[in-house]
């Protein structure tokens, strides 16, 4: 069972309290972008075996969206953080790097 700490409620919420929102930190390509960019934005998602940044919603709790950094292979959770950010905070990056010095970064 995946258990994430909601950064707004401060409680440990398990998977059934949450709703997954897919890959985090997408950059929107809207009107004026090329067809290729638009297609990538709409459909192309990472599917890594390893470190992944995701959006989650605490659906039966506070109802807020937040971000989580976790490992899709080991199911380890590196941390959760606010949705009001364009990139993972330093503390989360450091937590991942500590475990995986060879990690290439989140982009």
């Amino acid at each position: 069972m995946l258990i994430l700490e909601c950064p707004y409620c401060g409680v440990m919420a398990d998977e059934t309290d949450l709703h997954g929102g897919g890959e985090a930190h997408l950059k929107r390509f809207g009107p004026g972008s090329s067809d290729d960019e638009f297609e990538t934005y709409l459909f192309h998602r990472k599917n890594p075996k390893g470190i992944h940044f995701e959006r989650w919603r605490h659906v039966s709790g506070c109802g807020k969206w937040f971000h989580a950094a976790r490992n899709t292979m080991t199911l380890e959770v590196y941390g959760t953080y606010s949705a009001q950010t364009y990139e993972p905070p330093k503390a989360i990056i450091n937590a991942v790097k500590k475990k995986h010095p060879e990690w290439e970064g989140w982009t």
């Binding site: 409620c9 409680v11 440990m12 919420a13 398990d14 059934t16 309290d17 039966s60 709790g61 506070c62």
Partner: peptide, 17 residues
């Protein structure tokens, strides 16, 4: 509920299912 009720004390509120 999936919430941990053993840690609940009077004065705490938990929203869950």
């Amino acid at each position: 509920t999936p919430a941990d009720t053993s840690v609940m004390q009077p004065g705490m509120l938990r929203r869950t299912r």
